[in-house]
Amino acid sequence: MLAQVVLFDGFDPLDVIAPYEVLALGATLTDDPLEVELVTAEGPREVPSGLAAVSLRATARLDPARADLVVVPGAAGTLADGEPDEGSVLGRLGRAARGELAGLLAEALERRDVLVATVCGGSVLLAMAGLIRGRSATGHRLGLGALAGAGVRALDARVVDDGDLVSSSSVTSGLDLGLYLLERLVGPRVAVEVERFTAHERRGTVWRPVGAEPLVTTGPGTGGPARR
């Protein structure tokens, strides 16, 4: 099983490191082959994050034909009040959504044997590229409006499981996402052991499109179209 964690210029480091480390720890605790690698749309290179002092090196190119899991982070940067500039979170997400990465992510989403997961603004990146219209997803609370505006059913939940698309909310939710992915792909016993090792208990209930509909919703980000 191959998990590819995506890097792009301006990515948020914790969005990457949290799920990467959880998945990598899981790989050491199972006989099932689980490989985790950092990738870009362009191939191996040093990738600057949205924090000036932090960069990570991608060792391969994003390849949806090889990957079983693709993890897409959000961006780090300024919070622009008006039109997003190049150094803002939305500006960096938009630049990534207009580049070569968008085509590869579209291919990943089209492949039913590939699970695509997002952390924080990663869902907004997919929405900006027009890839998840009609789907259910979450992201940072500041980005729920952007998701809804792109035709996504935006949900204020810690983790949202919409089948082959699993999204998580703010930056630290990458830990919860990683543990949930381990549970789903490898099994709960391995996920619990990683949870113990990291001393992190998963937060929140994973939203899935099953069960009774609530009669009343009490939080933001519950509108938008249902999944196609």
Rank of each mutant, 00 (worst) to 15 (best):
L2D: 09
D9H: 02
G10A: 05
L14T: 04
I17H: 01
E21M: 01
V22H: 06
L29T: 09
T30H: 00
T30P: 05
T30Q: 09
D31V: 08
L34G: 06
E46H: 13
E46P: 12
G50H: 08
A52W: 04
A52D: 15
S55G: 10
A58W: 11
T59V: 08
R61G: 03
R61S: 03
A65F: 14
A67F: 05
L69T: 12
V70E: 09
V72H: 03
G74R: 11
G82T: 00
P84N: 06
D85Q: 00
E86K: 03
G87F: 11
S88F: 02
V89T: 03
G91I: 03
R98H: 11
A102L: 11
L104M: 06
E107H: 06
A108G: 13
L109Q: 02
E110M: 13
R111Y: 15
R112S: 15
R112P: 05
R112G: 12
L115I: 02
V116T: 12
A117R: 04
A117H: 06
C120P: 04
G121R: 05
G121Y: 00
S123D: 13
A127E: 02
R133K: 14
R135P: 01
S136H: 01
G139S: 10
R141G: 06
G143A: 11
G145W: 15
A146V: 04
L147G: 04
A148V: 01
G149R: 08
G149F: 11
G151R: 00
R153Y: 12
D156G: 08
A157P: 03
A157S: 08
R158Q: 11
V160T: 01
D162L: 08
D164K: 01
V166M: 05
V166Q: 07
V166A: 00
S167H: 09
S173C: 09
G174K: 13
G178V: 08
L182P: 09
E183A: 14
L185M: 12
P188F: 10
V190M: 06
V190N: 01
A191I: 06
V192C: 14
E195Q: 14
R196I: 15
R196T: 15
H200R: 03
E201Y: 15
R203K: 02
R203D: 02
R203F: 10
G204E: 08
V206C: 04
W207A: 09
R208V: 13
P209F: 02
P209N: 07
P209D: 10
A212T: 14
E213G: 02
L215R: 02
L215V: 00
V216E: 06
P220R: 11
G221D: 05
G221A: 01
T222G: 12
G224K: 08
G224D: 02
P225W: 04
